[in-house]
Design a protein around this nucleic acid. Structure first.
Length: 589
RNA sequence: GGGGACGUAGUUCAGCCCGGUCAGAACGUUGGCCUGUCACGCCAAAGGUCGCGGGUUCAAAUCCCGUCGUCCCCGCCA
């Protein structure tokens, strides 16, 4: 049919004027004027107006029932529109196709919801309906744009990594359960009844083995599967850019990812990122921003308020005093909104020589001005006698309401020196990142010291808080306050590895049965290595400013893990279970 | 496991607070008219067990309880 002659609707331009063309696509809208029809024809590239004149089209009568989403073939001549008939809202609005013939290739039933809404508007259709008819939803130009951007983004990543000596290696989907981390999806083995594969939470162990294999620079656009609850930015299966390098240190990883994102964002969006990205330590992040993934688009941390420097004459003042500095004027509406939400705070607004706000009568403005480095225009929000995170909540709300931030910007940030361990609710120690994360060189000797105490179990409860202070070579990449990547330099020293397993409560036997294959490989010459994984769904979703990652995934699951298109998960035939030696039992309530 | 929001015509919503002209609008659909529209316009029509189940009441879309579904969040996600 049209493989060679066909052209895309959205590409019609000056060079086709007065030429005969063949078009295929879906009917986006019909405007029936009686003896003339205007049809908006849509394919993935865009929309072009067809002019169907009763006098010129032989099968005009057949077209009376032409309806939205019918699939048609069109032969006609491209015309420049009369000057007063140009549609400036359409990229192809200067042109139209003077139709000679239309064939209806496929009729469409009336639609369950409108898909030809104005593209700049929010999609108003209920999401469950969109997911049930995902094939229709994806016809929306916006959804196609999301998928297309995702494709380009990932292609550029592949190009960049290829040019930088990386090779993409596929790792198994049928894998082995992992003892810690997220809940595994299990797959029963038919050939070995009673045994199970697990779907990979990430290719972590495989990629480290590939380093032992001398691959040196590995990457994979990898599906990862975790059986945990869903969120707007979490799906049970998601896609990571997973990579690992040998003979490198932390800074090499940072540089690589910075260069990669710089190049990919430039070529896909025309955005010029400033590199290097800021690096802050986990400790500073937590102290200054109360978060291990601060949003530095608004770079002013909440600080303790020094009542020595700026006295406050309020008899109710007690407890810890904190303040948030904002380098512009927060309007009345936003302040009322916060009060309406039940937050308690005082505020001061300076606009040149004008001061106002609930804080004004309690302080000397000169002292306050000194505190904020004599800014001419500012707002200060101040809380006392309540935890500091109340003020952080307020800041979060202002950020979410886009009061504090430029409308469109992307702020990447490295958070490094994560703790090596964390404390579980049950009092056990576990790895903050994963058990193969290397200790920070600064804390290595200290770790050995502590381990000796730990082994002797002199005073366990005394050692735990010390262990929690040990830093690691783990790092996160943060974009606009969202964790979009995570990685570490790995352990290659068997002694150290043993020590870590011991501290997190894994015996040699357990460690061997879970990770023996990895540890064994390390006995045959393991290069120093490290890597990172980037959550591509999240990054793309943030870049495209969609409400959830579902809008950048072709066939996502609902919050309860259903695919409304295919109705999965579903019950299976009893014989299928029998063959696997599986019986279902009612779950305990 | 927990907290919150939503569920009314094919779609998006109003009605719910205060039970009784509350079965409504717009878009879509169907039929008719129209040769320069582009959210075309005009005329007409069809279309709803108010998610489902139970309760209160003379009477329930409306109040109460349960349940299902979707969304947001906490827990969880090394």
């Amino acid at each position: 049919m049209g493989y060679e002659n066909r052209i895309w609707c959205g590409t019609i331009g000056a060079k086709y004027v007065n030429q005969k063309v063949e078009l295929f696509g879906w009917v986006n809208r019909v405007r029936d004027m009686g003896g003339i029809l205007f049809v908006d024809l849509r394919d993935r590239s865009g929309i072009i107006q067809l002019v169907v004149d009763q006098k010129k089209v032989s099968n005009f009568d057949d077209l009376a029932g032409l309806s939205n989403e019918d699939v048609i073939r069109v032969v006609g001549v491209v015309r420049q529109r009369p000057r007063d008939k140009i549609n400036t809202r359409l990229p192809t609005g200067e042109y139209e196709v003077d139709v000679e013939r239309i064939d209806i290739l496929s009729k469409s039933d009336p639609l369950p919801f409108a898909i030809n809404e104005e593209d700049y508007k929010e999609i108003s259709t209920d999401e469950s309906l969109r997911l049930r008819y995902r094939f229709l939803d994806l016809r929306r130009p916006r959804m196609f744009r999301n998928l297309y951007f995702r494709h380009k983004f990932i292609k550029k990543i592949r190009d960049f990594l290829d040019e930088n000596g990386f090779i993409e290696v596929e790792t198994p989907i049928l894998s082995k359960p992992t003892p810690e981390g997220a809940r595994d999806f299990l797959v029963p083995s038919r050939l070995q009844p009673g045994k199970f594969y697990a779907l990979p939470q990430s290719p972590q162990l495989y990629k480290q083995i590939l380093m032992v294999s001398g691959i040196d620079r590995y990457f994979q656009i990898a599906k990862c599967l975790r059986d945990e609850d869903l969120r707007a930015d979490r799906q049970p299966e998601f896609t990571q850019l997973d990579l690992e390098m040998s003979f490198i240190d932390q800074e090499d990883i940072f540089n690589l990812i910075e260069n990669l994102l710089k190049e990919v964002l430039l070529s896909t969006m025309g955005i010029e990122l400033q590199t290097p990205f800021p690096r802050i330590s986990y400790k500073i992040a937590m102290e200054e921003y109360l978060s291990d993934k601060p949003d530095l688009r608004f770079p002013y941390p909440i600080k303790r308020f020094d009542t020595q420097k700026v006295p406050i004459n309020n008899e109710n003042l007690r407890g810890e005093v904190y303040y948030l500095f904002i380098p512009f004027i927060l309007n009345r509406k936003e302040i009322d909104n916060l009060y309406n939400k039940g937050y308690k705070f005082l505020y001061l607004i300076r606009e040149g020589e004008n001061y106002k706000g609930t804080l004004l009568k309690y302080i000397q403005v000169e002292k306050m001005n000194e505190l904020v480095e004599n800014r001419e225009v500012y707002t200060v929000l101040l809380t006392f006698d309540q935890p500091r995170d109340k003020l952080d909540e307020i800041k979060r709300i202002l950020i979410d309401r886009k009061v504090l931030l430029p409308a469109c910007s992307f702020y990447f940030l490295w958070v490094k020196d994560f703790p090596l361990f964390k404390l579980e609710e049950d009092g056990k120690i576990s790895s903050e990142h994963h058990p193969f994360t290397n200790v920070h060189p600064e804390d290595k000797d200290y770790l050995y010291e502590l381990y000796n105490e730990f082994r002797l179990s002199v005073n366990f409860s005394d050692i735990v808080p010390k262990l929690l202070n040990i830093k690691s070579l783990a790092y996160d990449l943060v974009l606009n306050g969202v964790e979009v990547g995570s990685g570490s330099i790995r352990i290659t020293d068997p002694e150290l590895q043993k020590m870590i397993f011991h501290i997190i409560g894994l015996t040699d036997e357990e460690a061997n049965s879970k990770f023996g294959f990895l540890l064994n490989s390390f006995r045959y010459g393991v290069p120093p290595h490290g890597g990172i994984a980037l959550g591509l769904d999240r990054i793309i979703s943030i870049l495209l400013m969609t409400n959830s990652i579902r809008d950048v995934i072709a066939f996502p699951k609902t919050q309860s893990g259903s695919c409304l298109l295919t109705n999965s998960p579903s019950e299976v035939d009893r014989n299928q279970l029998l063959e696997l030696g599986i019986n279902t039992v009612p779950l305990a309530q």
